[in-house]
C-alpha cells in the first residue's frame, strides 16, 4: 500500500525567516489527517510546499509514491494527484458551477483543436461525456439545483462545497482542504463534516485538513499533526493530542474543553 502523500523534512525559508522547519508528514491511502496549529504556525505555507505553489527550500514530497521533482510547476504537481481548496475561496466566480467543475475535468478528457473548431462528432462526444461526469458529481453533492448559477453568487457554505467538488473532479489521490469550516455556522459545519467523510468512504480519497474548528478535527481526523512556529510539535491520534501536555500549553491554552 503506497501512501497518498509523503512529505519528508520540509523546510521553507523566506529571506531570514524559517516559516516551516523540518516538518515530516505522511498521509496513508484513504486516510483522513488533520494539521492544526495556532495562527502563523506555517500551516498554509506547508500546504503551498506540498502543492507546488511555493516550493519547499529543502525536503522532498512524494504523491502516491511518486517523487515531485524540484521546480515542478504547480499545475504539474496538481496533475500528479494532489488537489486543494483555498483558505479564501478561489472559485471561478463569474462562471457557472457546472463550468467550474468542467474546468477541473480538463486533463481527463482529450479534445483536439481541430475537432473542436470544426465541431466534428468527436467534439460533441467528449463534451457530452464531460458534462455528464460533471453533472453526476454535482448531483452527488446536491448541487444540481444551482449548477447554472454563477459560482460567486452562491451562499458561502455552498461555495465551499462547490470548491471541494471541483477539487474532487480532478480525480486526485489526496485532497488538501485549507480551513474549510472557516466562517461557517454549526449546521453548515455538520454538513461539511459529512461531506469530508464521504470523500474518504465513497471516493476513497485521502484528505489532509487544516482547520481551527476543533470539533470538526476531533470528529474526523484519524491522526493529527500539530504545528507551532513552523515546527512539528506533536503527532498522534485525537485522544493523544488532546492529552498532550505540549499541545495544550502551546495551542489549546490549558484545560480547553474540546
Amino acid at each position: 500500500m503506497t501512501d497518498a502523500l509523503n512529505a519528508d523534512h520540509i523546510t521553507k525559508v523566506f529571506g531570514g525567516l524559517t516559516a516551516v522547519d523540518d516538518v515530516s508528514l505522511h498521509v496513508g491511502e484513504k486516510e483522513l489527517v488533520a494539521l492544526i496549529g495556532p495562527n502563523g504556525a506555517g500551516k498554509t505555507t506547508f500546504f503551498n510546499c506540498l502543492t507546488g505553489v511555493g516550493p519547499a527550500t529543502t525536503g522532498t514530497v512524494k504523491i502516491g509514491g511518486q517523487e515531485v521533482k524540484k521546480n515542478t510547476k504547480a499545475y504539474k504537481v496538481a496533475q500528479m494527484g494532489i488537489s486543494r481548496t483555498f483558505q479564501n475561496i478561489r472559485l471561478f466566480s463569474k462562471l457557472s458551477v457546472l463550468e467550474n467543475v468542467l474546468i477541473a475535468l480538463t486533463n481527463h478528457y482529450k479534445e483536439n483543436f481541430l475537432t473542436a473548431v470544426l465541431r466534428l462528432p468527436a467534439y460533441y462526444k467528449t463534451e457530452e461525456a464531460m458534462e455528464e461526469r460533471a453533472k453526476e458529481l454535482l448531483k452527488d453533492f446536491d448541487l444540481e439545483d444551482v449548477m447554472y448559477f454563477p459560482a460567486g453568487s452562491l451562499p458561502y457554505g455552498t461555495q465551499r462545497r462547490v470548491e471541494i467538488v471541483r477539487a474532487l473532479a480532478t480525480e486526485p489521490k489526496i485532497i488538501c482542504l485549507d480551513e474549510p469550516a472557516a466562517g461557517m455556522n454549526p449546521e453548515e459545519t455538520a454538513d461539511l463534516t459529512r461531506l469530508i467523510k464521504r470523500l474518504q468512504t465513497e471516493y476513497g480519497i485521502a484528505v489532509l485538513l487544516i482547520e481551527h474548528d476543533m470539533s470538526l478535527v476531533m470528529n474526523l481526523a484519524e491522526r493529527i499533526y500539530v504545528l507551532a512556529e513552523g515546527k512539528l510539535l506533536a503527532k498522534g491520534t485525537p485522544s493523544e493530542i488532546q492529552n498532550d501536555e505540549a499541545v495544550i500549553n502551546a495551542y489549546l491554552g490549558g484545560g480547553a474543553d474540546v
Partner: peptide, 8 residues
C-alpha cells in the same frame, strides 16, 4: 492560481 491548482 485556482486554474493551476486544477492542473490547467
Amino acid at each position: 492560481i485556482a486554474a493551476e491548482a486544477m492542473g490547467v
